[in-house]
Design a protein around this nucleic acid. Structure first.
Length: 808
RNA sequence: GCCGAAGUGGUGAAAUUGGCAGACGCGCUGGACUCAAAAUCCAGUGGUAGCGAUACCGUGCGGGUUCAAGUCCCGCCUUCGGCACCA
C-alpha cells in the first residue's frame, strides 16, 4: 500500500468532514482528552512528541468510536528560556524563531494524522492568550494570593545576569565560567502554600498513578510539631520549628540559617569575620548540596548564646548552611543524640551529646532517631515520645513560649523572571502609590518587539524606555512598569481552561462552557511534571474556584504518564551522545501509521525504553498480512454456506476474545498487549481456510470487526481497508465492536494440577466442575493416581478455571 | 544526599494483581515454494541432562511469609526520573 498517498487522502477527507471538530451539541457525551502541549524548541517533532501524541490519539479515536464526543486540542507553550538563549547566541528574535518553529511543528503534527481540533489552538506567546495570563495574575493579586518579597537568584557576576539553575554547572556560569553567587531581589510570589492542605487531601480522590500522588505528597511535605521560642542573651527572641519536642531537653546548640536576619545582629565582634566569610561561601552552594547528608556539616559559632525555654540552659548559637531559611522558621534546635545531622555536627564542633530518649529495645547506640521513652527530662521522664511531644509543647504554650504548628515543605511559587521572552507582569511601580496593578481595561501589557536581549546587567525590558515609562493608574504621576516577566509555568497552569473557549475575546473563558467541559477526562504527559506543573495547575484551579469562576475542584480527573524512548544504546537521546533517532525518515519510508503502531507495540507505554529498528519490521509484516488477507477476501468466491461448525465457533471465540481484550487494553493504555491481541486474531483468521466451502459472510463480518479494532491504532491504513471492504462512511463514525460473551463460553477448560505445589500435569475439565468431580478425575488419571499412591489427600486447593493443588 | 520508580530468555516485552513464568513479536534453526535470492508459508526455540517420555534449575543478589512468590515483607546491588529559574 502506498502509505504516503493514503495518508494524504484520508487527512484531506477527515479535514473536510470535520472528524476532529468538537460538536458542542453533544457536550453531554463529552470526553476531554488532553496531551501536554509542547514547547516549540525544534523545527520538527522528536520521537518523544510522537510517543506522547500518537498512542494518545489512538486512545482518543477509540473513545470516539465508543460513542464519546471527543475534544482533543493542541497548542504551544511558546514562551521560555531556550528561545531567548538562542536569540542571544544567534541574534534571531525569539518571536521570529518561535513562530517559525510553531509553523513547522504544526505541519508535522498534521502529518501525524492525529485528531486534533485545530479550531481551539493556543499559542501562549500571542497577545490574545497572555492577556488572560496577566488577567490571572491580577485576579490572584486581588485575592491576596500574589505578593512581593525578597528572594535569592543565581547571579553571574561575569555576564551580569540572572541564571536559571540549569545554566549553573558545578557552581559556574555555563556561558562564561564565572562563579555564580546568590543575590537577593524583590520578586513576585503566588501563595500556593495557602492551599497546601487541600492540595494534599485532594490527591486521595484522583485517578492518578500512585507514584505521582506520593511524589506530590512528599513535595508538599506536611509535618506536625511545634514552634518553640528561644531567647538570645541579647533579649532577641527567635522560634525554631521541631517535630521532636520530646527531645527538647537534649538540645546542646541552636542553628540559624546563614540568611537569618538575627545572624548579622547577634554575631560577636570576635566572630564577625568568620561568620561573614561563611555566609559568602554559602551563597556559592545550591540547595541540593546544602541538604546532602553525605556532605561535611559546616558551620560557625556566632559568639552568642540562647536560652532553652524548657530548662533555662544556655546553648551556643551557630550559623550553618544545612538549615534553610526558606523552610520552617529558618532556625533549628540541635539535638545530637537524636538526629543524624545534629550528631555529625556536634561531633565535629565538640558539642555535648545528651541522651533524652530511651530505646524500648535497650539499644544504647547514638544517634537514636526513633520514638522511645523520655529520660533526663525532669517532669516528663517515663512518657512515650508521643506523649512528651504534646506535654512539653502544652507546658510551653501555657508560658507563652511555644505554639502547636503544622509545617509544609511546599514553598510559595516564585513567578518573577528577569527575562524578556515571557508575559510581562502587569504591575506599575509608582513612587507615591507603590506597586499598582494595571487596570483590567489596559490589558494586555504588550511585550515590545524592539529590545536588546544581550545580557549586560539589566533585564531586557528594564532597558526599554518606551515600555518602562508610563503613568501611575492611581495618581497619574510618572511611574515605571515592572521589568520582569511571568514564569512560563504560569502560562501552562491554566491553558486547559482556555482550550474549550479559545477564541473568547471578552474573558479568559466562559464559566458556563468551562463547567460543562472540565475537568479534563484524561491527561497524558511526562512524569517529570509530577511536582511542579501538575501542582501549579491544581492550585490555579482551586484559586479560580474560590473566586467563583469554576465549579470543580480538580483540573485533571485521570492522568497517565508516558515513558521515555531512549536511544538505541539505552541512554537518553542527546545531541552530545549522537544517539538521536528522528521520526521523519521512518514516517517518510514506512508511513505514520507504521511508526505509531510500532511505538504502541514495542514498549510498555508508561515505561518506554530503547529504540530498535527491528521492531518496525514486525509492524510492516503485520500490515502487509492484513492487506493480503483483505485482497483474498475481496476476491474470494462468495460461498453461501452459513453453517456454524467447530471452525466457526473457534473463529467467533477468537474474534470476541480479541474484542474483549483490546477494548480493555485500550482503556488502560496497555497498547502493546492490545496490538498483540490483534496479531493473535489475525493468526486465527489465517487458520480459517476460505478456499474450502466455508462461511464467507461470517468470516467477512469478523474481519470487519478486526479492522474496527485496529482503526484507532492505524487510522489511515484502516480507513483504506474499511473502504475496500465496501463501506461508504469513515470507520471512525462506526460503533466500536461489542463482545458477545456467549461466544466466549467454553464447555471445557484446561487446568494445571500440582501435587504438593509442584506442577505435575494438566487436565481438561468441564468449566463448571465441582470438587467431587475434580477428585474423581484425579483418581481417574493414572499418572496422578500412581504418584499419590496410598497416601491420603490432606488438602485440596482449587482455583476455579486455573489450577488444583493436591496436598498429600 | 533526599523523594519516586525499575531490574523477567539472545532480544522488545506479557503474566487477569498471590495461582501453569515467558502471551504477542524480533532474532535464530530446520522445512516448503524458487533456477536462485528476496518475500511468503509451516514447524521448533529459557537453561542443563537424556534418543525419548521426562527430570532438575530458572524472574538483579541474600534472607523470610505462604499450600503456592516475578508479584507480599526485610536487607543489599545496579539503572533511571524529579529536586522548586529547562519545560
Amino acid at each position: 500500500m502506498d502509505m504516503k498517498k493514503i495518508e494524504k487522502k484520508w487527512q484531506e477527507i477527515w479535514e473536510k468532514e470535520g472528524l476532529a471538530h468538537f460538536n458542542d451539541k453533544n457536550a453531554d457525551k463529552k470526553y476531554y482528552c488532553l496531551e501536554m502541549f509542547s514547547y516549540p524548541s525544534a523545527a520538527k517533532l522528536h520521537l518523544g512528541h510522537w510517543y506522547n501524541y500518537g498512542p494518545t490519539d489512538s486512545f482518543a479515536r477509540y473513545k470516539k468510536m465508543k460513542g464519546f464526543e471527543v475534544f482533543q486540542p493542541m497548542g504551544f507553550d511558546a514562551f521560555g528560556l531556550p528561545a531567548e538563549n538562542y536569540a542571544i547566541k544567534t541574534g534571531v528574535h525569539p518571536k521570529d524563531s518561535t513562530e517559525q518553529n510553531i509553523a513547522n511543528m504544526e505541519q508535522t503534527l498534521r502529518e501525524m494524522g492525529a485528531m486534533f481540533d485545530w479550531n481551539a489552538e493556543i499559542k501562549t506567546c500571542n497577545e490574545d492568550y497572555y492577556k488572560w495570563t496577566q488577567w490571572l495574575f491580577l485576579k490572584l493579586y486581588e485575592k491576596g494570593l500574589a505578593y512581593r518579597k525578597e528572594a535569592p537568584v543565581n547571579w553571574c557576576p561575569g555576564c551580569k545576569t540572572v541564571l536559571a539553575n540549569e545554566q549553573v554547572v558545578d557552581g559556574k556560569c555555563e556561558r562564561c565560567g564565572s562563579t555564580v553567587v546568590k543575590k537577593d531581589l524583590t520578586q513576585w510570589f503566588f501563595k500556593i502554600t495557602e492551599y497546601a492542605e487541600e492540595l494534599l487531601q485532594g490527591l486521595n480522590n484522583l485517578d492518578w498513578p500512585e507514584k505521582t500522588k506520593l511524589m506530590q505528597k512528599n513535595w508538599i511535605g506536611k509535618s506536625t510539631g511545634g514552634e518553640i521560642e528561644f531567647t538570645a542573651e541579647s533579649g532577641d527572641k527567635f522560634k525554631v520549628f521541631t517535630t521532636r519536642a520530646d527531645t527538647l531537653f537534649g538540645v546542646s546548640y541552636v542553628v540559624l540559617a546563614p540568611e537569618h536576619p538575627l545572624v548579622k545582629k547577634l554575631t560577636s565582634k570576635k566572630q564577625k569575620k568568620a561568620v561573614e566569610d561563611y555566609i559568602i561561601e554559602t551563597s556559592k552552594t545550591n540547595e541540593i548540596e546544602r541538604l546532602s547528608t553525605a556532605r561535611e556539616k559546616t558551620g560557625v559559632y556566632i559568639g552568642h548564646n540562647a536560652i532553652n525555654p524548657i530548662n533555662g540552659k544556655s546553648v551556643p548559637i551557630y550559623c550553618a548552611d544545612y538549615v534553610l531559611y526558606s523552610y520552617g522558621t529558618g532556625a533549628v534546635m540541635g539535638v545530637p543524640s537524636h538526629d543524624e545531622r545534629d550528631f555529625v555536627f556536634a561531633k565535629k564542633h565538640g558539642l555535648p551529646i545528651v541522651r533524652v530518649v530511651k530505646d524500648v529495645n535497650c539499644n544504647t547506640e547514638l544517634p537514636f532517631c526513633s520514638d522511645g521513652i523520655v529520660m533526663n527530662s525532669p517532669g516528663f521522664d517515663g512518657m512515650t515520645s508521643e506523649e512528651a511531644r504534646k506535654a512539653i509543647i502544652n507546658q510551653l504554650v501555657k508560658e507563652g513560649k511555644a505554639e502547636h504548628k503544622t509545617n509544609y515543605r511546599l514553598r510559595d511559587w516564585l513567578i518573577s523572571r528577569q527575562r524578556y521572552w515571557g508575559a510581562p507582569i502587569p504591575v506599575i511601580h509608582c513612587e507615591h502609590c507603590g506597586a499598582v496593578p494595571v487596570p483590567y481595561s489596559d490589558l494586555p501589557v504588550k511585550l515590545p518587539y524592539d529590545v536588546e536581549f544581550k545580557p549586560d546587567g539589566k533585564s531586557p525590558l528594564a532597558k526599554h524606555e518606551g515600555f518602562m515609562n508610563t503613568v501611575c493608574p492611581k495618581c497619574g504621576a510618572p511611574a515605571k512598569r515592572d521589568p520582569d516577566t511571568l514564569d512560563t509555568f504560569v502560562c501552562s497552569s491554566w491553558y486547559y481552561l482556555r482550550y474549550p473557549d479559545a477564541k473568547n475575546t471578552k474573558e479568559p473563558f466562559n464559566p458556563e462552557i468551562i463547567n460543562k467541559m472540565l475537568p479534563v477526562d484524561k491527561y497524558v504527559g511526562g512524569a517529570e511534571h509530577a511536582c511542579m506543573h501538575l501542582l501549579y495547575a491544581r492550585f490555579i484551579t482551586k484559586a479560580l474556584r474560590d473566586m467563583g469562576y469554576l465549579k470543580f475542584d480538580e483540573p485533571f480527573k485521570s492522568l497517565v504518564h508516558q515513558g521515555v524512548i531512549l536511544g538505541p544504546d539505552g541512554l537518553r537521546m542527546s545531541k552530545s551522545k549522537g544517539n538521536i533517532i528522528a521520526p521523519d525518515p521512518y514516517v517518510e519510508k514506512y508511513g505514520s501509521d507504521t511508526l505509531r503502531l510500532y511505538l504502541m507495540f514495542g514498549f510498555s507505554y508508561t515505561e518506554g525504553g530503547p529504540w530498535s529498528d527491528d521492531g518496525i519490521k514486525a509492524i510492516i509484516k503485520f500490515l502487509d498480512r492484513i492487506e493480503r488477507l483483505t485482497m483474498s477476501i475481496i476476491s474470494a468466491p462468495i460461498c453461501k454456506n452459513a453453517d456454524i461448525q467447530k471452525d466457526e465457533k473457534e473463529l467467533l471465540f477468537a474474534t470476541n476474545y480479541a474484542i474483549k481484550c483490546v477494548d480493555r487494553d485500550m482503556e488502560n493504555f496497555s497498547f502493546n498487549t492490545a496490538v498483540a491481541r490483534l496479531m493473535e486474531l489475525l493468526n486465527a483468521f489465517g487458520k480459517y481456510d476460505l478456499k474450502e466451502n466455508k462461511n464467507y459472510a461470517l468470516f467477512k463480518e469478523c474481519f470487519a470487526k478486526f479492522i474496527q479494532l485496529l482503526a484507532p491504532c492505524a487510522p489511515h491504513f484502516s480507513e483504506e481497508i474499511w473502504e475496500m471492504l465496501g463501506n461508504k462512511e469513515s470507520v471512525f463514525l462506526s460503533a466500536y465492536p461489542v463482545c458477545d460473551e456467549k461466544a466466549l463460553l467454553l464447555d471445557e477448560v484446561e487446568i494445571a494440577v500440582q501435587i504438593n505445589s509442584k506442577m505435575r500435569t494438566k487436565l481438561v475439565v468441564p468449566t463448571d466442575i465441582d470438587e467431587t468431580g475434580i477428585r474423581k478425575l484425579i483418581y481417574a488419571d493414572t499418572k496422578l493416581a500412581a504418584e499419590i499412591g496410598d497416601r491420603s489427600i490432606k488438602k485440596l486447593i482449587i482455583v476455579p478455571k486455573r489450577l488444583v493443588n493436591i496436598i498429600i
